[in-house]
């Protein structure tokens, strides 16, 4: 019997060609996978940021589902408002997605998100993490990793790069009592879609943390975009896991974590780092990974 080649993710597309993303951008992939998982009855609300620009310019746009644009800090509130409107009008079987960037979530949008979790708003909140304010020109956000160059953490004489750790947004939301949280990576589409399918019909606030490379912001060759994103997980820098009602579990086992150097050295934003700094980052990543494993152990006992 001949093996007929199969699609490993759904065939349906809800993203249109001709969008304005840079070559090699991870965001359109995240949009593709999200909508493949959620389907036609999905409304996105997108604040200021790359997400809004990628969808193109009026009178056109690049999705086949409704989109509401909003101000930077109010994604979770607008999303919950849409859900509230649907509820009072009896609109059912619809997914309401808040689609914000990392800055729009962990910095300026944190207050509204926290309140939505507090209300257990029935929304899917997707944080598209490209690790800086990319749309405004690569400025440091609360999600920029240690060691990274950005335009507001420039490098001069081997100093000046970002020295503050990435905000632990998942832990904040777990402490906040979120019912479902998961990390996904555009380099692992099947896992990405599986997480959204798992989350979509849970009642309450679902938080999806997406790692998506930004080719100009990370200073990477566009063709290396997926390779770099994959390394983020393979090195343990961006482990894939989920948290269901406070219980942590790995969604992708990494047998032998690759050295962080492999990930860092593919990216111009880290190229200034010397041996000592790389070793330090390796140490931090090892510690964070151990912390994650401990949380998995502790929450499953």
């Amino acid at each position: 019997m001949v093996n007929i080649p199969k699609f490993t993710i759904p065939k349906e597309e809800y993203v249109c060609k001709g969008h304005s993303a840079c070559p090699g951008c991870g965001t359109p992939l995240a949009l593709r996978y999200t909508l493949k998982a959620l389907g036609k009855r999905t409304v996105l609300n997108i604040p200021a940021g790359c997400g809004g620009v990628i969808l193109g310019v009026w009178p056109s746009y690049a999705l086949k589902v409704p989109v509401v644009d909003n101000a930077f800090e109010c994604t979770a509130a607008v999303a919950d408002g849409i859900r509230a409107g649907f509820d009072v009008l009896g609109v059912e079987d619809a997914y309401v997605v808040g689609w914000a960037g990392d800055g729009g979530t962990v910095d300026i949008g944190l207050q509204a998100l926290s309140a939505a979790v507090d209300r257990n708003a029935n929304i899917i909140y997707i944080m598209l993490d490209n690790e800086a304010y990319m749309n405004t020109g690569i400025q440091k956000s609360g999600c920029t990793p240690i060691g990274a160059w950005t335009t507001t953490t420039p490098v001069a004489d081997e100093k000046g790069w970002n020295t503050s750790p990435k905000k632990r947004i998942m832990e904040m939301l777990v402490a906040n009592g979120i019912v479902y949280g998961a990390t996904v990576n555009v380099a692992f589409p099947e896992d990405f879609i599986a997480r959204l399918r798992e989350a979509k019909d849970i009642k309450g606030t679902k938080f999806i943390h997406v790692l998506a490379p930004c080719t100009p912001g990370w200073r990477i060759d566009p063709k290396k975009s997926i390779e770099v994103a994959r390394l983020a997980t393979q090195t343990g820098i961006f482990p894939l896991y989920k948290v269901e009602n406070g219980r942590y579990s790995l969604t992708k086992e990494i047998k032998n974590r690759k050295p962080v150097r492999e990930y860092l050295m593919l990216q111009g934003r880290f190229r200034h780092l010397k041996e000592e700094a790389i070793n330090q980052i390796q140490k931090i990543v090892d510690e964070e990974y151990a912390r994650l494993l401990k949380k998995i152990k502790d929450t499953n006992e």
């Binding site: 249109c16 060609k17 001709g18 969008h19 304005s20 070559p23 969808l55 193109g56 009026w58 009178p59 056109s60 746009y61 690049a62 086949k64």
Partner: peptide, 17 residues
């Protein structure tokens, strides 16, 4: 209300290549 009318498919981004 500021709504869109079309999709971006007419935007021939192949010229960027």
């Amino acid at each position: 209300t500021p709504i869109t009318f079309f999709t971006t498919e007419d935007n021939k981004t192949g010229t960027w290549r």
